[in-house]
Simulated scan of single mutants.
Amino acid sequence: MSERPIRVVIVDDQSLIRLGFRMVLEATDDIDVVGEAGDGEAGVEAVAALSPDVVLMDVRMPGMDGIEATRRIRRGHPDTRVLVLTTFDLDEYAFGALRAGAGGFLLKDAGREELVAAVRAVAAGEATLAPRITRRMIELVTTDGAPAPRPHRSPALTAREQEVLDAMARGMTNAEISAALFLGESTVKTHVGRILAKLPARDRVHAVLIAHGLAEPGDG
């Protein structure tokens, strides 16, 4: 018997964008759009009523924005993952949503395959941030001429776990880490799980923020 489809709620104040995402996602066999909302407050209510696996969350919306909605969803429904949507290449709003607990980041002009892959990745807890995204995150929290945050070094991590964390911080996927460090992908997954437990970090994205000095271990 196949696994049940990934349940998705789309939160965006533009109905045409919601329709476009719905059409793309529902064309796949393993994703089911179970609800939509036009603002953050309605999105929080939809999550409470529908218990989706993933929320596609716009950042800039009237009323409750995506940052506050993400924060409330993650606090009240920790099993629901949030994939942040924005038209910008990571502005302060999107970064704030990541700090609030979002598990991934996606531009609204992403292609069909990229959107589907991102939903699947976030649902599986494998979400990561591309290198250009992590670089932009650092730029947003440093002032002109200020040094970048110091990378996190934890005495609780083994040397190999630190290598894996550093690779995660560079935006590498488990498959890429496996190839780079000559490890089996299952071994990489084991290391990632131990890293999240030892930091502690709520998820992979939080671990990346910690690795770049942009969040504190155990924060959030």
Rank of each mutant, 00 (worst) to 15 (best):
L16H: 14
L16T: 13
L19A: 14
R22C: 09
M23N: 08
L25Q: 08
T28K: 05
I31N: 06
I31A: 08
V34K: 02
V34G: 01
V34Q: 01
V34R: 03
G38Q: 13
D39R: 02
G40W: 02
A42Y: 00
G43Y: 06
V44L: 11
V44W: 03
E45D: 15
E45W: 00
A46L: 10
A46H: 01
L50I: 08
S51R: 14
S51E: 13
P52S: 07
V54A: 03
V54G: 07
L56N: 05
M57C: 08
P62D: 04
D65M: 09
D65P: 11
I67Y: 00
R72Q: 15
G76N: 07
P78S: 12
R81C: 06
L85F: 09
L90F: 00
D91Y: 00
F95I: 04
G96S: 11
R99C: 12
A102L: 12
F105I: 01
L107E: 13
K108Q: 06
G111W: 00
E113L: 11
A117I: 03
A121P: 00
A123H: 04
A124T: 01
E126T: 02
L129G: 02
L129K: 01
P131V: 09
R132F: 09
R135L: 13
R136H: 07
E139G: 13
D144H: 10
